[in-house]
Structures are given as C-alpha cells and as structure tokens.
Amino acid sequence: MTEEYRDHPVRSYVLTSGRAHPTRNTLRPETLLVAVDGRAVPATLSRPQRELLRLCRGTLALAEAAAYLAMPVSLVAVMVSDLVDTGHLTIRSNHQAHVLPPRDVLEKVLDGLRNL
C-alpha cells in the first residue's frame, strides 16, 4: 500500500480484504453480537478483528462495536460477517426482512417503555 492510501476508509477497506459489502444482508446497526465462548483467537486475525472479538465478550449491537472501534458500521459489518463464518462470533437477534417488527414485539416495547 502506497502513501496516498492512508485515509481511514481506504485502510478499513483493505483490512476487510477488499470486500465492501457483508456476505449477510441481515446485519443492521441494532443487530446484537456476542463472541463464541472459549474459541481461541487465531493469530491470523487482523487487529481490528481481534478488538471486535474482545468487545463482544458481552452482548453489544453492531453500531456499538463500530462506535468503540471508531469505524463505519458498514465496514464493521463486513468483519462481523467473516467472524460469523469462521465461528468466532454469533448474531443474537434474529432479524427478518420485516418492514415493521411483529405485533407481539411492539406490545413488548410498549410495556417496557411504560415501565421505565
């Protein structure tokens, strides 16, 4: 990589092996992530990938991981996708392609808000 490619987006793009889009389109900013317990972290992982796994020792949303890593959500989504493929990370919340969440979910949201 030559000197002119030092800005953050390009560097991140390289870190994700040149793929700009995640393999899974189910990832959203609010998608919950958690690292798989007890999996050794291979030395071949990039530093941001290892940071991501470390952050995900507890449950966090994709957007939170991106904020702590100071990387765009779309680029962290690519890393997440790869780490799910290799069995290091799991996706906790199961998002279907609904325009709106189902009614029972909305009712639970309402109950939760009223109890805050």
Binding site: E30, T31, L32, E51, R54, L55, R57, G58, T59, L60, A61, E64, Y68, L69, R92, S93, V105
Partner: peptide, 15 residues
C-alpha cells in the same frame, strides 16, 4: 474500547 460495563445483560436476545 474495553467497556465491559457497557455490555447488555446476557439475557437480552432481541433488539
């Protein structure tokens, strides 16, 4: 980037 206190409770399965 180390914010263990910021994690969601382990029982949270839906966002």
């Amino acid at each position: 980037t180390s914010k263990p206190g910021q994690h969601l409770a382990p029982t949270i399965t839906r966002s």
